[in-house]
Design a protein around this nucleic acid. Structure first.
Length: 395
DNA sequence: TCTGGGGTCCTAGGACCC
DNA sequence: TCTGGGGTCCTAGGACCC
């Protein structure tokens, strides 16, 4: 195998993405704190907030009730995922003008690979293009691997550009706190603090045996490499989904099992649709429940044969619910499919009775949904659906 | 202040098999 | 008769990321 060509890696990260799109499209929001997220009355949290809001101490994942207290004068918005996805696609398309080697990490982040030596120049051009053409602020970090590009990006925020080259690691990276390393969260940081490791430099100087005790073998080896600026992860342009999940926290806890099952039915239909749309089937189906006291359980089961059928997903989650769901009330219900396989119709067995009919029906419904969107369909389903939600499964 | 939703990856124990 | 070792799969929980 030939060694991968030497390239620069750029991490492009759209600043406060959802809030920036709103400020772009609503000039009256500019210069003001904008907070995108759920509502305080329905247990929402902050999804994204503008830098004006951050000055009040507001940040992502904060309970909305707290954000309202900290910054009552902010503009609060529910967000418009459809719009953000469309804008994200425009941004990704813009990146493609500069390089074909792109790994989209999330809706607002992507790694780009360019020839060695061209990283900073290209990143500056991309920032200018995104600003001029899409009117959005973008921060970029440049290095020779993903890890250092990511850290450089963190140091350049907001609306900046910086690089962090391997030879600068001792001088620039080692004085910084552990939390600048991706993968070191609050729990790991606390464990390391307890044994006197406070900076990235401390981490780099600690014998691996000490780290293994705190973090386990795999994490110890990896984070010691990271502390030295070493990262061999390749760019992955296409990533296969490994699981799909749908979950819902209720505005007020749900008390009755029938109401909860109706939610599981909606989730099963959504997951079935997503599987079929992706041409995948799942061998494992799981249930997640959170009780009123916030304790959370997950249960899953692996099937003999992979499925993409709403009714089968629903059957399994309900079975798990009846076995492990307890008394309620429940704060959250979630459904998950994993162990995904590419859909293949080949089977030497006859499909179970009713399955063919359901497949045909499902096909029609998927097509309708693709054509007219979820709104029409969900409404149609709900009309017939309250009955379906209470029907005994498996028939 | 009372804790979202969508994911990925890791650990650890037990079952089961050779 | 109280005694193995390794490998894989499954399940539950948790850390972490955006």
């Amino acid at each position: 195998m030939a060694e991968a060509q030497a390239r620069d890696i750029i991490l492009c990260d759209l600043d406060a993405f959802f809030a920036s799109v709103e400020q772009r499209d609503h000039p009256e929001y500019r210069g003001r704190p904008v907070i995108v997220g759920g509502s305080a009355s329905s247990r929402g949290v902050v999804s994204t907030c503008s830098y004006e809001a951050r000055r009040f101490g507001v940040h992502s994942a904060m309970p909305m009730a707290r954000a309202v207290k900290l910054c009552p004068g902010a503009i609060f918005l529910p967000g418009n995922m459809k719009l953000y996805r469309a804008v994200s696609e425009q941004v990704m398309a813009l990146y493609e003008r500069f390089t074909p080697d792109i790994e989209a990490v999330s809706i607002d982040e992507a790694y780009l690979a360019v020839p060695r030596g061209e990283g900073l120049k290209t990143a500056a051009k991309i920032r200018r293009a995104v600003r001029d053409e899409l009117e959005l602020p973008l921060t970029a970090g440049v290095s020779t691997n993903k890890l250092l590009a990511k850290i450089a990006c963190g140091m350049a925020k907001p609306d900046g550009l910086d690089s962090l080259w391997p030879e600068e690691v001792p001088q620039k990276l080692w004085p910084l706190p552990l939390k600048v390393l991706p993968g070191i969260g609050p729990v790991s940081a606390e464990k390391l603090h307890r044994v006197g490791i406070k900076t990235v430099g401390d981490l780099a100087a600690t014998p691996e045996s000490v780290l293994v005790q705190q973090l386990g073998q795999a994490a110890a080896a990896e984070c010691r490499q990271h502390a030295r600026g070493i990262d061999s992860r390749p760019l992955e342009p296409v990533r296969q989904a490994k699981s799909f999940s749908e979950e819902q926290t209720f505005a007020t806890d749900v008390a009755g099992p029938e109401a909860l099952k109706a939610v599981l039915m909606e989730q099963a239909e959504e997951l079935g649709y997503r599987l079929r749309a992706a041409g995948m089937r799942a061998r494992t189906v799981g249930l997640k429940l959170r009780f009123a006291d916030y304790t959370t359980i997950t249960r899953d089961v692996t099937l003999a044969e992979a499925t993409d059928r709403d009714s089968e997903i629903y059957r399994v989650t309900v079975q798990l619910f009846e076995r492990c769901g307890g008394e309620g009330p429940w704060r959250l219900a979630g459904s998950r499919v994993s162990n995904l396989e590419t859909s293949r119709q080949l089977t030497i067995f006859a499909p179970p009775p009713g399955a063919v009919k359901e497949d045909k029906l499902g096909e029609v419904r998927d097509r309708l949904r693709n054509k007219y969107g979820t709104e029409v369909l969900f409404r149609a389903r709900r009309l017939a659906g309250s009955e379906a939600g209470h029907r005994k499964p498996g028939r």
